[in-house]
């Protein structure tokens, strides 16, 4: 079974994590690094994906600065979303061969990982047709947006970006107020704590997702490396 390196990066600025992703993509492309699953939390950030609907950001520049929230326009699919403390962010950097590649199947697999994890908590997460992500009823608990980077030395692709799972209650209260998440106006967001009524640590949830990730994507269950790299 292929090996996957899982790293817990703790809390990290979005820009630094993005640079780290790009560096690892190049290394994985050249087979200098093993495929990786980066797990982390971000400092408060809004990211705007390729769909680019600035009107879905409800704060102006001054308001963002006042609230200490960064803003990035980035190269993943999707619209605007929020990242911040209390949210488990996962960046799977996987090499996928071009043969048998299915972009949408990859999204469905990421959703599957989170749905399986939620089932562990007695939460029945599901999909909404046309709205990628994981939903509990009409509330979104996990956002997904990815990029397929064409490998330069091989035929396939290296994936980047990934999923963001709301763990702490405060995430939905703080971050998502300033935006219309993914441009979907009629649905709200929720979190693991809200649904279970219990307190959870982001890092623990990160560890608990590993066996499901390994199962769905066919890797040996990785052990977490506490990484200090940047």
């Amino acid at each position: 079974m292929p090996m996957l390196e899982a790293q817990w990066l703790a809390r990290m600025d979005y820009g630094i994590a993005w640079e780290l992703q790009k560096k690892l993509i190049r290394e994985i492309d050249r087979e200098e690094s093993s495929e990786a699953l980066l797990l982390l939390e971000h400092t408060p950030t809004y990211t705007i994906g390729s769909d680019r609907h600035p009107e879905h950001l409800l704060y102006g520049k001054e308001e963002l600065a006042r609230r200490g929230i960064s803003l990035y326009e980035i190269d993943r699919g999707g619209d605007i979303t929020y990242h911040g403390p209390g949210q488990l962010v996962g960046y799977p950097l996987l090499y996928l061969d071009a043969v048998g590649l299915d972009l949408h199947a990859y999204l469905r697999n990421l959703e599957e990982v989170i749905i399986k994890l939620l089932a562990d908590f007695g939460i029945s997460g599901g999909r909404k047709p046309e709205y990628t992500g994981v939903w509990v009823g009409d509330s979104k608990i996990a956002a997904i947006g990815v990029k397929f980077n064409k490998a330069r030395t091989r035929r396939g692709f290296v994936t980047s970006h990934g999923f963001a799972l709301n763990v702490k209650k405060n995430v939905e209260q703080e971050g998502f107020q300033g935006i219309i998440p993914c441009g979907i106006t009629e649905f709200g967001v929720t979190s693991l704590e809200t649904l279970t009524g219990l307190e959870w640590q982001v890092e623990d949830i990160g560890r608990r997702i590993l066996p499901y990730f390994a199962e769905v994507f066919g890797y040996a269950v990785p052990t977490v490396i506490e990484s200090l790299s940047s």
């Binding site: 994906g49 390729s50 769909d51 190269d75 993943r76 699919g77 999707g78 071009a98 972009l103 949408h104 990859y106 999204l107 990628t132 992500g133 997904i144 947006g145 990815v146 990029k147 397929f148 980077n149 064409k150 490998a151 330069r152 035929r155 692709f157």
Partner: peptide, 18 residues
């Protein structure tokens, strides 16, 4: 061959088209 020509978007995926 296999070099990215353009970025394409579908759903929540952004992919380089080789």
């Amino acid at each position: 061959m296999y070099e990215p020509l353009c970025d394409i978007l579908t759903d929540k995926v952004n992919a380089e088209l080789p």
